[in-house]
Amino acid sequence: MISPPVWNKARVLLANGFSIMTAYRAQIFIWMLSGTLSLVMMLVWIGQAQQAPGGRIGGYSGPDFASYFLSVWLAGQMIVVWVAWELDFEIRQGGLSARLLRPLDPIWLHLAEHFAERLVRIPLMLLMLAAFAWLTHARFSTRALDYLLFTALVLLGFLFRFLWEYCTGLLAFWTDSSTSFSDLNWLLYSALGGLFAPLSFYPQAVQDVARFTPFPYMLGLPAELLSGRSSTGAALWGLLILLAWTVGFGVLRLWMWRVGLRRYGAVGA
């Protein structure tokens, strides 16, 4: 059987990434447990709702908060990206040189590793999600379309975040502190994405700005879809904006890669 070379490459890269990631399964579990900020926020909001008169805040009851924040947690776990740290390390330590010798842009290696890691992560995550949902009485949407849109948003959100973090990592060609920028990225993403509260709780001015950034469509919108609070129209609009940002950062990545590589001299060169 003749398999097209692209498909072949992708299969090998994925299989390779998968075997790396299964070796780190305990670490993946620990990483998952460390991304708990959305769960902490969930508990505090549930606590507030329980203490509020009427048991509701901004139209959300305790279980509503649970549905929203558990979905945020799920979406957040699906779009975890650490490529900026790896790039920073490779560029500063010279490990990039070895990768450049291969007849393949290193971005594909990183992408395959991230995808493979997701395959290890998802089963663990769904187990934990089921336990959390049972403990907090969270309820999720019953519309099949919502899950389809959720998947599309999360996939595109992951791609955008990957490219965005890749560009941040490439800053290491120019500066020693690209990882500080990565920290800033996370803060921007979590604040405007709706990790601290549903976006409708934010001041109007912040909401107006956030609407044109990709962040609410990576976390808040998928979470609202899963908890049955959003519409197909809103999801399609979100997909469109995310797509525009993804294409933009894809182009930026290509440009930064070309310019940066010209500056790059391996350690000892």
Partner: peptide
Amino acid sequence: LFYSRPEAVSMG
């Protein structure tokens, strides 16, 4: 965000 909600009783 918590203190901006009028219906929220101040954080415990």
